[in-house]
Every structure is written in C-alpha cells, then in structure tokens.
Nucleic acid binder design. Sequence first.
RNA 1: GCGACCAUAGCUCAGUUGGUUAGAGUAGCGGUUUGUGGUUCCGUUGGUCGUGGGUUCGAGUCCCAUUGGUCGCCCCA
Length: 460
Amino acid sequence: MEKIKPTLSKGTRDFLPEEVAKRNFLFEAITKVFSKYGFQQIETPAIERLETLTGKYGDEGDKLLFKILNSGDFLKNVPSEILAEVKSSAALKHIAEKGLRYDLTVPLARYVVQHQDKLAFPFRRFHIGQVWRADRPQKGRYQEFYQCDADIIGSAGLLNEVELILIFTEAFAKLGLHEVELKISNRKILAALAEKMNCAAQFSVLAVAIDKLDKVEKEKVFETLLQEGFSQQQIDVLATYLNLNGTNESILQQLKQFFIGISIGELGIEELETVINTALSVAPNAPIKIDLSLARGLDYYTGFIIEAKNNSGSLRSSIGSGGRYDNLTEIFGGKNLTGVGISFGVERIFDIMEELNLFPENLKSGTQVLFCHFDEVTQNFAFKELQKLRSGNVSAEIYPTVSKLGKQLDYANKKQIQFAVIVGSEEVETQMLTVKNLKEGTQEKVSANVLLQYFKNKYN
RNA sequence: GCGACCAUAGCUCAGUUGGUUAGAGUAGCGGUUUGUGGUUCCGUUGGUCGUGGGUUCGAGUCCCAUUGGUCGCCCCA
C-alpha cells in the first residue's frame, strides 16, 4: 500500500490530550456561568441545508461557506448546458445541497423558529461548537474553530443586556483575565449619527468604517470615507461625534446634547443609560465603558452592542462580542422574536490564558494511579486491586503487558501519573503493596485492604 | 480574491561556489547482567529531499510549472 504523509488540511488543528484538558477547563468554566444564569445548552448539526446558510452573511460570507458535495452520482442532475459552460457558480446548486455551519447564530434562528412550540420564551440558550469557514487561515484564525454563544430570544427587556454584561464580567474574572474592558454602545445612536450626517442610506459603509477605528488611524478612515463619496461636512459631523469623551456619565450628557431632537438617537442613549445604571447597581465593578467608535461590522445588530477587549499580555484584542438583533428570525418566518446575545472568542481566550499561564497545573492526566507488576501472577493480583480503586472512584490503570519495571514507570512518568503501585511476589505474599510517589520520589508500604482509603485521602 | 515566504526522517533542523553511499538532535525500538522513572551510556529502525519537467557529465542545491502549508491584506472569531 502506498504510504500517505500524516498532514492536516490547512487551518485545522489536532489537539493533544493536555490541550483538550485545558480547553475543557475553559469550556466548563464558561458553561458553569451560563448555567448559573439559567441558560440551557443546545446542539445543532454541523451540517445544514445550504439554503439555510446562504445569503445570511453577505457575498463575502457565501464564498467562505464550506459546501458538501452531494453523495452518489453528483453530476447526474446538472443540466447539460451548465455542464458545457463549466461555470462553477451555476453548477453549484445542482451538485451541493448541504454545507457546514458558518456560525452558531443562523442555526439558532432556524432552531428557534422550527421548535417554537416546544420552547419556553424568553428562550435562554447557550451553544458551544465548531464552525467552519473557507477563509485564508492566518495567525489565530482557522478554518475550523469553536464558538461559544449565549443568547436570549424573544424578550426586548434591557435586563437581558445587563445579564449578558454580568456573564462577561463574571466569566473573565473566573478565568483570571482581570484586565478586560467591556466596550459598549448602541446601534440606534449610530443610526442617529447617520441621520445627522444625512447618509442613512450608507449606514453599513459608515458602520464598517467606524468599526475600523481601533486598528486604523482616524485620518485614514476619513480619507477612505471621502473617497466613498462622503462630503467634508459629513466628515466634520463624524469627527465631532468621535471627539466626545470622558466618563460614561459625561459622554451620555454630551450625546444627549449632540442628538437633541433625533428620536432614534434619544432612544438609543436612554437604552444605553439604563443598561449602564442597572449593571452598575448590582455589579459596581463591571468594567463597562461607552466606546463611540464601537460599531460591529455585522449588519444584523439593531440596538445594544458590546465588545470585550483584553488588555493584558501581548494579545490585546477582542475576546468576546455581542449585541441585540431584532430581525434575525424573520427570514425563517419567526415573528416578534428579538434576540440579544454574546459570543466568547474561546480560541483567543485560550491563547491568552496559555501565554499568561492561567490554566491550573493538575489538568494533565486523569489517571491518578498506575499498577505495575512483574509476571502473570502479580498482574492478576494487581488487576483485582485496580478494580477496587476504580469502584471507589479513584482513576487508575494497569500496565497491560508484562514488562520491565523501568518501562512501566517511564510510562507513568510520561503520562504524569503521580502514583505507582508496585506489585511483586513479595507484595502478594505479605499483602503490603509498594506505593511510589513519582512526583516526590518517595515510596512506602500500604496494606492492600486500606489502599482505597489511602488514595481517597490523597484526593479527598 | 490579492501579495510575501516556506517545503530534507513522526517532530525540530543542518547539508559549503551544483560533486561519491543525504546527516544531527528528539521521539520509537532493543540493550546497559534482568524489582525503580523523570536525570547515564551503547546500539538500531526510519528519507524515491512535496510532485512533475528542464539545465548539466552530475541537482537536496540552479530554472519553470504544480500541489500543499505558513504569514500579511480584504473580511472576520
């Protein structure tokens, strides 16, 4: 048989056992916070019908969807004139009717509408799972990665926004990320800005431009907007808006002056004020800060928007984001189902925690005890002792073949198993087993009938 | 979609102006007189040098193409 090189497809990763242990630690920490706030976990398939996915992410997004080739004779249903054209875009719908999900939000919209009769609204769910994008991979960006979302569907109350702020605050603190800033704003304020600038039609161009401000210099952004057909007068309005600063309270006051008489702006400011005051009333230390340059690129946000920025270590980037979207379920026929949600950037959070050494030490191996032996007789004896430990919920294993002790201990060492129980003929005879602590390098004799208790004490 | 860079053992890499049978470390396996690892020492498996073509007496090395990967840009988590 021809040998195949062991390589991965681009933008994908294998995870070693230690990495999975760390990732699980991260997921479990977030899961616990979600559960505490009354969110229920759901799952949806990795595969969705292509019609569910296409058209939701813009033209760019559609290109980045992974499509799944129909099984069987997939060319059979392609009309011959399209085959003759050799045009992929025209042939696509005939050869692929499924794709891999691009995010967890669109599947959620489908899910909520499809199961609305069985769900309790407001529906609070969280979802942790892989998504796939046929993007050019680069540092920290993959074709397969995890998203970790919490959303509340079917409730316009601003308490929902506040709860999501609390979840961000609590989860980041719990993970040891203490230098996180929660930048917040409201899309209605941006809508008011567009109105004041007389460019409501170009709202998304404006939003995308503003969203770049944390990376690109202000002047460059203005320049780009001028090229896009904005006037100097409009830019001046934008510049004045972006110059508003100070404490949250002061910004709110300035905004009220700035947008006086623009009703959508007044509404947005009022929402923002309520969210901030309510959040601070229960969590005075929540690191929330109004950021007028926050816009969020995604089109579907309509109200509150939030972005969590990490300010420690070398990776100072966005590690979570979210916002309110009013119309997401409409395309699937869902009515009056406004939603608000957040997403943890778990891949980046993982990298940051790795850099800052925030993972606990003892995650590496699940196994606590390895039984070592020398021949068939001692192996059989050890195997029975092993089961006793397991029945007491001590995680243990036995070296599966008769091998030299050095090799068995070496295995324990590599797997970072802390204890070896050495069972030789002498131990069988005296019923006193040798317990070696591989971390300390010490060993002692322990009676076989108290072995379970011995390890239970070690691990509570 | 655009650009830059890279490709030699499972992994990390060396390989001189093109010159004989392509090396090292690490991992694996075996041993170190056989019941003590992480931290000795010795031996050993493993490569059509990403693939195809070209230049040359001769190509891992130079040229072209191609495939794959990494890193930027657009966009995004």
